[in-house]
Every structure is written in structure tokens, then in C-alpha cells.
């Protein structure tokens, strides 16, 4: 699964339309699920308060349907378009993964926004999302790749 396909195909208008539609469906899913409402997200993260378990079901629905896509692409051995398949290589659990995930969890719990919903919230002019996205883009940009061994 981790061997990349040998292909020099690049994006076409059709594949870009696919990415646009995927982003649109993804955003609609986040909105319908309530992920773009930080109060609802924090209601899920507050297990000691009045706990709203909804977001656990977002994960269940997302994983179940994404699993179908993963199995389909594995069965075909590639994409429908012939574009190369960029599957992550399975690497061991390492320190950057654990430290990074802890930092991400801190930020998620402080703001009630993870990356996707923050971007979608910009699309409906939700003002608190603007500083979150600004900080996020700086954080994604600032670390040199060689620090991360990439």
C-alpha cells in the first residue's frame, strides 16, 4: 500500500473539480455535525460538565464512510483518475507525534476549533475564527522541516 504509483499524471480540471466538491461536502458535513460551533465542541470536551456526546458520533460516521473509500482505493490499487496515490507511510509512534498532538489538543480545548471548522467558520464571517486561523497558519508555517526530520 505504501508503494507510490509510478505516474507522471498531474491535476486536470476534472480532478480539481473533484477536490473542490470534496472540500464542499467536507464543509457541509462539519456544519451539519455542529463542529463549526465552538460551544458545541466545548460541550463535548467538557466531560465533567453537562456532557454532549454528539461529536463522538461524528467520528463514528466519518470513520465508517472513509473506511469504504480506503478499502475501495486499496482494492483498485489506485485512484479512479490515474493520479498517484499519496498514502502516508506507516512509521513508528515518535516524540514529535506525541508532543505535537498534545499541543494541538491544548489549542483545540482553548478555542473549541480544530483546523477544518476554523476555515469553514471564516466562510460565514464568524469573527472568533479569524484570530484562530491567523495563529494556525503561522504555526503551520513557522517550523523548519528539518527540525521535524522531514
Amino acid at each position: 500500500m505504501s508503494t507510490p504509483q509510478l505516474s507522471d499524471k498531474t491535476d486536470t480540471l476534472g480532478s480539481l473539480a473533484g477536490a473542490l466538491v470534496a472540500g464542499l461536502i467536507f464543509g457541509l458535513g462539519l456544519l451539519l455535525a455542529g463542529m463549526t460551533n465552538p460551544a458545541k465542541v466545548l460541550g463535548f470536551l467538557d466531560i465533567a460538565g453537562a456532557w454532549d456526546p454528539s461529536l463522538a458520533l461524528v467520528m463514528v460516521g466519518g470513520i465508517a464512510v472513509a473506511r469504504i473509500g480506503v478499502l475501495a482505493v486499496r482494492r483498485r490499487g489506485g485512484t479512479l483518475t490515474g493520479l498517484p496515490l499519496h498514502m502516508p507511510h506507516e512509521r513508528p509512534v515518535d516524540r514529535p507525534l506525541l508532543i505535537g498532538s498534545a499541543l494541538f489538543g491544548l489549542g483545540w480545548g482553548l478555542a473549541g476549533f480544530c483546523p477544518g471548522p476554523a476555515v469553514v467558520a471564516i466562510g460565514f464571517d464568524y469573527l472568533p475564527a479569524f484570530p484562530v486561523v491567523a495563529g494556525m497558519l503561522i504555526g503551520l508555517w513557522v517550523l523548519p522541516s528539518k527540525w521535524l526530520g522531514r
Binding site: A19, G61, L80, M87
Partner: peptide, 23 residues
């Protein structure tokens, strides 16, 4: 709505994987 929203997210992930080969 949580399950349906999650299913849409999974559908979008499947589309991006099958069309663009991307996670």
C-alpha cells in the same frame, strides 16, 4: 445530525482519495 455530518465528512475523504489520491 452528528452521524449524518460525520458521514458527509467520510464521503468527502473518500472522494478526495479516489479522485485525487490524497488524504
Amino acid at each position: 445530525s452528528a452521524l449524518a455530518g460525520g458521514a458527509l465528512i467520510g464521503l468527502a475523504a473518500s472522494v478526495l482519495l479516489l479522485v485525487n489520491g490524497r488524504i
